[in-house]
């Protein structure tokens, strides 16, 4: 399973994906989102969509001092919240800014490749590739 940005040019900036991601907690708002949509130098220039690329050798996990971020077999990481001390090294280590932060909990929010964001994208910007063989890590 891998989440990817199919075509950012079709993104309208509606944030439906961000709200869907945060809604996994059951509540409203944006505190829990781990997908980001921002303008590419102003809205007139379109949008950049930021999702976790589930790296094979994740820099975020490599800098975690407490082992709270556990690399997964097929790439990406899972968060063991009880081990996390909220140091923020992981956030700094991700050069595409795909480690998001829950300010209320002071902990990272990590993409689990569930694809709910893609389900709520009305413009086919995102896709979740379910068959591992089709996943390209380019």
């Amino acid at each position: 399973m891998k989440l990817s940005v199919k075509d950012a040019m079709r993104c309208v900036g509606c944030q439906s994906c961000m709200f869907a991601c945060s809604r996994r907690s059951g509540n409203a708002g944006l505190s829990n989102t781990c997908i980001g949509v921002r303008s590419t130098g102003g809205i007139s220039r379109g949008y950049t969509v930021i999702v976790c690329r589930s790296c094979k050798n994740p820099p975020c996990a490599n800098v975690c001092p407490t082992g709270a971020l556990v690399p997964q077999k097929n790439g990406g990481v899972r968060l063991k919240a009880s081990k996390c001390i909220g140091c923020g090294f992981c956030k700094e280590a991700c050069i595409i800014d795909a480690v998001f932060w829950n300010e209320e909990q002071n902990k990272p929010v990590i993409c689990v490749q569930c694809g709910i964001c893609a389900e709520y994208c009305p413009y086919d910007v995102l896709e979740l590739i379910k068959d591992e063989k089709e996943v390209s890590y380019e």
Partner: peptide, 21 residues
């Protein structure tokens, strides 16, 4: 900002959200 907004019933919330969406 980036906050959470609590709802009184999570199941109902998801359903109503989907209806509107």
């Amino acid at each position: 900002g980036k906050r959470m907004i609590e709802v009184t019933n999570k199941k109902e919330y998801r359903k109503l959200y989907n209806d509107i969406y």
